[in-house]
């Protein structure tokens, strides 16, 4: 009789564990299937290209892309500071930066309103300068960036810590300045994490509902993004709501696919002792 260590596969798990896992997976997959079954396929194209739907779709894409750009612009320096420096209160700062991740979006929207609203902390001064933010497209972008920023910071900071500072130290001893080290070593090394972080941020921005509604309102063509449009159409035209929802599902599937695909390349993994075969020059 042969006794050899086989890898632990599903067959070796207690059957009830597999059964519970199947139930859990169905819980996630079934609603998507249910929605796909409910889509009015013959009218799908007209439904998603109606004037209000097209306006919402375009607005969502525009604002989400802008918000993602803002997340990259501010998130990369934030992740660098959190990962590469140490100062008093850094842990507290990290927790605060991640706050939008756990905050109910409506609360976030309210907070933004009391910051940038007409009578808000900064809004009153901006208002005096003739700049109105609340209930404009800018407010949509700010709402989306607010909730999406932690995704980018979190994923990038983790990657920076994993890569470590050894390559940067080598770069510095070779005569590279701080900017050169950042541009030619640090950022290329964490590029996969930056891309997947940006994709996640984009997805979060695209799905943003609560903060947008609170801070930006729901004005067709100006602040009514796709999720808001879905919510409104649900009452008056359920077929349109389902069709638009299905577009969001497709985007979500694409995002998950990309985020999974963008992994650190094999040769970007932390260096390990060379195998005996590979060590032979």
């Amino acid at each position: 009789m042969r006794l050899e260590a086989a890898p632990l596969d599903a067959a070796r798990l207690p059957r009830w564990v597999v059964a519970v896992a199947v139930v859990g997976s169905l819980f996630v997959v079934l609603p998507v299937v249910a929605m796909a079954l409910r889509v009015d396929w013959p009218d799908f194209v007209p439904l998603v290209t109606s004037e209000s739907a097209a306006a919402a779709l375009l607005l969502s894409l525009r604002t989400s892309l802008t918000a993602t750009a803002l997340c990259v612009l501010f998130g990369v320096p934030m992740a660098l500071v959190l990962a590469r420096t140490s100062f008093r209160g850094q842990r507290l700062l990290r927790s605060l930066v991640l706050l939008p991740l756990v905050l109910p979006p409506v609360v976030g929207g309210l907070a933004l309103l009391y910051t940038f609203g007409r009578r808000g902390l900064l809004g009153s001064s901006l208002s005096a300068l003739g700049i109105e933010i609340a209930f404009t497209t800018t407010a949509v972008v700010l709402s989306q960036a607010f909730v999406a920023l932690p995704f980018l910071v979190l994923s990038l900071e983790g990657a920076l810590r994993t890569v470590g500072t050894r390559y940067e130290a080598v770069g510095a001893t070779l005569g590279a300045g701080r900017w050169t080290v950042l541009r030619r070593i640090t950022l290329p090394l964490v590029l996969p994490a930056l891309v997947s972080g940006a994709v996640l941020s984009f997805a979060r921005a695209l799905g943003e509902f609560g903060a947008t509604l609170t801070f930006a309102g729901s004005l067709q063509g100006t602040t009514r993004t796709l999720p808001l449009e879905v919510y409104l159409q649900r009452e008056t035209d359920p077929d349109a709501a389902v069709a638009l929802s299905f577009i969001l599902v497709l985007v979500a599937i694409a995002v998950v696919g990309v985020a999974h695909r963008v992994r650190p390349l094999g040769d970007l993994a932390p260096p390990r002792a060379p195998s005996r075969e590979a060590a032979r020059a």
């Binding site: 390559y167 080598v170 001893t173 030619r184 290329p188 390349l265 260096p271």
Partner: peptide, 13 residues
Amino acid sequence: VSLLAQEALLFPH
């Protein structure tokens, strides 16, 4: 001053 370490630490990209 250049430093050559135990591992080559070549920039992987």
